[in-house]
Amino acid sequence: MSTAVRVPEQVSPRQTEQVRRQELAAFLRSRRERITPDQVGLPPAGRRRTPGLRREEVAQLAGVGVTWYTWLEQGRDINASEQVLEAIAGTLRLDPYERAHLYNLAGLAEPPVEKECKAIGPGVHAMLRQLEPFPAVVLNGRTDILAHNRGYTWLLGDVDAMPFEERNSLRLCFTNRAWRARLPDFEESSPRVVAQFRAAMADHVAEPSWKNLVNRLLEESPEFAALWRQHEVQPHRNMLKRFLHPDAGLLRFNYTHLWFGRRSEMRLTTYSPADEETRAALPTLPG
């Protein structure tokens, strides 16, 4: 008796397009629900059945038709121009990463804003590889993780598995339990971390991406909110840091910040073993 072999169904372009529209609709809804009326200058409108802004409020603020925007959030087969997407991105206070994601889901080329991650050239990536197995990471002033090596993945977890917009070390420290579990001294060091971020934000107080990050942390982490209200500021310093690895146990590293230029806010942070036990615990990574 022969057994029929099921041939996998091919996904048609039409099906792919439908999935993309559904993803776009879900993304818009999630961004709309996190914005409160007072954040966009709207008066309170009494009790709301759903969190965040209403569809008609987004449409009004973005200067588009209510019916058209509703269809967009319903995943209907309509097209959005670059000008309309720009207006919606501004209304929903999308940061550069979310803005690029919106354009991609809408089937348009990314907006003409150079991403910092694209400024990480091949030479920097080569240097990150050469530092292995020592962990190393490239961060910007907003603490977004722009590039990292396999040693960093081993030490803190799989950054590549995270959504692009979630790869922010400050937010991971305060809201990601798995990340936080590897930082045994974070409760003690968190005031310094927040003070460093507040000092860095002085040059970016009006930028949506920075304000969005702070607003999200204020909503998601009472610990961050309490520290933020203290208005402490500190510079970045090279220090010793301990990590609790799930397999290797307690590790001690000296970490060093190397800035890309005199006025650059991007920095390469390297972690070198502070003792022989830590050095011996580092993994052997394939070439």
Rank of each mutant, 00 (worst) to 15 (best):
P111A: 02
T36Q: 15
G151Q: 01
L61D: 10
F174I: 10
R55K: 06
T278Y: 01
F253P: 01
M127A: 12
E73Q: 07
A178V: 15
V5C: 07
C117T: 14
T70K: 04
Y69T: 00
R267L: 13
E219L: 12
G41A: 14
A87I: 01
E98R: 11
E98P: 02
L102F: 08
E110K: 14
R29D: 00
I120S: 05
R150N: 07
A280G: 13
P135E: 04
E98C: 07
T67D: 15
R171W: 14
E33D: 10
P163M: 09
A199D: 08
P184V: 06
N168V: 11
A100L: 07
D160Q: 13
G249R: 02
G75E: 12
E277Q: 11
S189N: 08
G123Y: 05
R49C: 08
A280W: 00
W68V: 00
D160W: 03
R262N: 08
E223Y: 03
R14H: 11
I78T: 14
D38F: 05
R76K: 09
R142I: 08
L282V: 02
S209V: 00
P122Y: 01
V66N: 08
W71T: 02
C173D: 01
L92Q: 02
W210D: 09
A100Q: 13
R32T: 05
V11P: 05
G287N: 12
V19W: 15
R54W: 11
E276H: 06
R237G: 10
V138T: 03
Y103P: 02
A161F: 03
E219P: 03
G63S: 04
A200I: 12
H101I: 06
F197M: 14
S2Q: 12
Q39P: 06
